[in-house]
Design a binder for these strands. Structure first.
Length: 500
RNA sequence: GGGGCGGUAGCUCAGCCGGUUAGAGCAGGGGACUCAUAAUCCCUGGGUCGCGGGUUCGAGUCCCGCCCGCCCUACCA
């Protein structure tokens, strides 16, 4: 049995969650469910980055206390779970969870041999929490740059350069897709310089975790946030070994914009602390909405909960999994959401379930026949429909492996495609076997056909479970076993678009 | 300024180490069927594979330059 730790990044909570973060959560949830179904031991953790200075700014802007703003917004993120049908094993808030601070402090000490103090000054953008060169201005934020002159703690990233390169190049740390791996390798090969890992307490506005033994300094938010991967595992009390050191795979999901922190800084920190490294870094690109960038600080923010309320969780999850390419930003529009849902879920899968139920009710009084004919008849095998039967069989046989393979490659499109192929094959099987005709002309042959179809629907429900747990359960509930009675047909996925 | 990733049929995208007439889905067009959510099934696509060079017997598929979009970064002495 494989032990698998899955994690999402933790967003800073200066605003409400948007669809882009929902993407990451859904992907993580799918992987977790998939592996659980495989029998793996899985832990999925997520949470919020409360200690970002951006939260302080947002609180200032809103005229409320930081703690209050963070509490309120973090709750919004936690609230995504129910409506999006996500199942987390843990949700850690970096400001509120006692495990976190203890863990971060311990981790800091574990890296002490790579930490040193250095004075420097520069122009700092609070919005980016980032330094710029003289004469530059921040491309993203209006606020003027602040001249900062102070002494901070630095982490000896440079020391780990070669080791990191080898680990990534050699695949010990797998970065998917490969395009992102190349990016990281190029960056590492270009040379790594030490980076600052603390801020003056004043500049951090007193928000964050103080540097152990140096109360005038606050730990840099990225150091703090990355630490969550360990602190949620009880690193602070040394209890992390079960899910970290002894896990077979440690998998991080993240967006491309924070790749460097996860593929370079974080592994280096772990090397320094002598902890195991992540095995998989799975990187998704960004979402745009109606062709425009989304962000928490501005622009069109699509509220995932609003979408779920309007179109249902299955439609939203299906779009995120089915329409978002592995590489390249994807543009979300309501039209695309509806198109995907109506075409594949309503007309494809939903209609299949309905028509199968309809057939069973009309010709067999709702009782599911056995797959095999009751009396074995050897000479009816090589009929025109046998090729269709074998096509369906073939597709069904291959589907589970295809799904697993696609998910291992972090390709949700291909994975959902493999599920949907079964639906298509089943619909072809219906047209080819023509059950309505069999009912009139060769009733004995109708039973195995209907039995096969019901069985296929149940199988699709199983395959669909990690992706659309709600829909899968609904479909499974309509697929009785042989000899059992089928519920009356009713649409599983009512169409969202115009009534057509 | 540097690095990376994209730019393939109207739309969304696939196209391992270069090799017969460049693919899929959707949309569009034609046909069939009637079990089903007016659904499904079958047939139908001639697109300078961003632009310009180059390597090669042969290049979306490799090299160089340029254009557009996106991500990261900009000697923290």
């Amino acid at each position: 049995m494989t032990r698998l730790l899955l994690s999402t990044t933790i967003p800073y909570v200066n605003g409400r969650p948007h669809l882009g973060f929902a993407l990451e959560l859904v992907q993580a949830d799918v992987l977790a469910r998939h592996h659980r179904l495989r029998g793996d031991e899985v832990r999925l953790q997520t949470g919020t980055d409360d200690n970002s200075l951006k939260n302080v700014q947002a609180a200032d802007a809103a005229g409320v206390a930081v703690g209050d703003l963070v509490d309120r917004n973090a709750a919004e993120f936690a609230r995504l779970a129910g409506p999006l049908s996500l199942r987390f094993d843990d949700f850690l808030r970096t400001s509120a969870d006692p495990r976190h601070r203890a863990g971060v402090e311990r981790f800091w000490r574990a890296c002490a041999h790579d930490l040193y103090r250095k004075h420097y000054e520069g122009l700092y953008c609070v919005g980016c929490e980032h330094f710029y060169q003289p004469g530059e201005r921040c491309p993203e934020h209006e606020a003027p740059l602040q001249r900062v002159s102070e002494e901070n703690w630095f982490f000896r990233l440079s020391r780990h350069q070669e080791r990191l390169y080898d680990l990534i190049a050699g695949g010990r740390i797998r970065i998917e897709p490969a395009e992102r791996r190349n990016e990281v390798l190029a960056f590492v090969a270009g040379g790594l310089t030490d980076f600052s890992v603390s801020r003056s307490r004043a500049r951090a506005r007193g928000w964050g975790i103080p540097v152990p033994g140096d109360p005038d300094q606050v730990i840099y938010v990225w150091w703090d946030a990355l630490g969550y991967y360990l602190t949620a595992l009880e690193y602070g009390t040394g209890g992390h070994d079960r899910w970290w050191g002894r896990a077979d795979r440690r998998v991080h999901l993240l967006g491309k914009s924070v790749l460097r922190f996860h593929a370079v800084y974080w592994p280096a920190m772990l090397l320094s602390a002598r902890e195991a490294l992540p095995t998989d870094i799975l990187v998704h690109d960004h979402l745009t909405v109606n062709g425009r960038k989304i962000s928490k600080s501005g622009g069109p923010a699509v509220d995932p909960l609003g979408l779920v309320a309007e179109y249902g969780v299955d439609a939203v999850r299906w779009w995120l999994l089915r329409d978002v390419p592995r590489v390249g930003d994807a543009d979300f529009t309501v039209e695309r959401l509806i198109a995907r849902h109506d075409d594949e879920l309503a007309n494809g899968l939903g209609n299949l379930v309905s028509r199968v139920a309809g057939l069973v009710h009309r010709y067999r009084d709702g009782v599911v026949p056995a797959v095999r004919a009751s009396e074995p008849d050897s000479d009816r095998v090589s009929e025109p429909d046998s090729d269709r039967a074998s096509e369906l069989e073939e597709v069904r046989r291959r589907a589970p492996g295809a799904v697993a393979e696609a998910l291992d490659a972090f390709d949700f499109r291909r994975a959902t495609g493999a599920v949907y192929e079964v639906v298509e094959a089943a619909n072809r099987y219906v047209s080819r076997t023509r059950p309505w005709q069999l009912a009139r002309e060769d009733s004995a042959r109708l039973d195995p056909v209907l039995g096969t179809l019901v069985e296929t629907c149940r199988e699709v429900a199983g395959l669909l479970t990690p992706f659309l747990p709600d829909a899968a359960a609904r479909i499974a509930a309509r697929c009785a076993g042989p000899g059992e009675r089928l519920p009356a047909p009713a649409p599983v996925f009512p169409r969202l678009g115009g009534a057509a």
